[in-house]
């Protein structure tokens, strides 16, 4: 495919360019030339701009990988963790930790969220595997309902406990609150992406199904468990630190699969990078559209992501 080198170049250059642009955008003027002479400018860069940009890149890469892994586990290309119960289960976990241990650290909240997300995703996976494989759209529909039910439980409990504004923070993903000292847990996302790449061949084999996996001597059960942990940890970190961000996990793996195929040893790094580029681009749009105010990145992604998703859907039918 001739489009390939161009796509790779575009993603690589895009990440670089957007990273630089993201550092330059903000309410305060920050001429890049002055960071070496002006201590205040350097401070602004290191405390706010850089952490925010790094957080966006890590989150975008992580969410794309979580979507990819969940799609492999469920064997359905139309699911992503944030809308099919994992994100909502994570929110339930943070809420529970906040209610039971009001002084809990952000790491403790993430741990609690990861545990509930793991349970919630396992239930989703178990039920998804029982749905008839002849109707692939039943799984994402079930996922939306399932996520909706858990989300409703979260809202109800939060309303009872007068914690609704917290729930709002976890459910609407945005990066305006990211400062040095409040995002560092997101580096775990980088570790998760690296872990996914480490087991890329196993994930590719798992994507061919249980029987092919067993025939090749792969411990299918173990790779499913590992995948579930990855999905739960990534989603929980995203929910706790920046809030729910839809569509990245859905659109990016489909996009990369169309262009490069599903051999993850080569495609997985591009899934991560494309996720980072998409989220960074949407964050920048959200910061610019009604400058100096911000539109949450989740809202921008709702528009951009659904557009991309429609393109993938229609592109599919044309090809078939």
């Amino acid at each position: 495919m001739a489009v390939l080198p161009n796509a790779r170049l575009l993603v690589g250059a895009g990440l670089f360019g957007l990273f630089a642009i993201s550092l330059c955008i903000g309410v305060d003027d920050l001429p890049m030339g002055s960071v070496f002479t002006d201590a205040g400018a350097l401070q602004l860069l290191l405390v706010s701009r850089l952490p925010r940009t790094v957080a966006v890149v890590l989150t975008g890469a992580g969410l794309a990988i979580a979507g990819l892994v969940l799609q492999i586990l469920v064997r359905n290309r139309f699911v992503e963790p944030i809308t099919t119960g994992t994100g909502q289960s994570a929110a339930l976990g943070v809420l529970a930790v906040t209610l039971l241990f009001p002084t809990a650290s952000i790491a403790m909240k993430t741990l609690g969220a990861s545990l509930t997300a793991l349970a919630g995703t396992s239930v989703f996976l178990t039920i998804a595997h029982r749905l008839p494989p002849t109707q692939p759209f039943l799984i994402p529909l079930f996922g939306l309902v399932y996520g909706g039910v858990i989300g409703a439980a979260v809202t109800f409990i939060a309303w009872q406990a007068d914690l609704l504004q917290y729930v709002d923070i976890w459910t609407n993903g945005e990066f305006s609150g990211v400062l040095r000292g409040r995002y560092e847990l997101l580096w775990i996302l980088a570790a998760m992406v690296a872990l996914a790449w480490w087991v890329a061949d196993r994930l590719t084999i798992a994507s061919m199904g249980r029987e092919v996996s067993l025939g090749l001597g792969l411990n299918y059960q173990r790779i499913v468990q590992l995948g579930l942990v990855m999905v739960a940890v990534i989603s929980s970190l995203a929910v706790v630190v920046v809030g729910m961000i839809p569509f990245v996990g859905l659109v990016v793996p489909n996009l990369v699969s169309r262009l490069m195929g599903d051999n993850l040893k080569s495609a997985l790094p591009w899934v991560a990078m494309t996720g980072a580029v998409l989220l960074l681009a949407c964050d920048i749009i959200g910061r610019l559209i009604r400058y100096p105010y911000e539109i949450p990145v989740g809202t921008v992604l709702g528009v951009v992501g659904s557009g991309l998703f429609l393109w993938i859907l229609f592109g599919r039918t044309q090809r078939a």
Binding site: R75, D201, T204, I205, S207, M208, G209, E211, V212, L216, G217, L218, S257, R258, G261, D262, N263
Partner: peptide, 18 residues
């Protein structure tokens, strides 16, 4: 086997060596 993964033929055959 209904392999839905978008793999190239050479990649698929190569997984036989796994």
């Amino acid at each position: 086997p209904a392999v839905a993964s978008r793999l190239k033929v050479r990649e698929l055959v190569g997984f036989g060596r796994f």
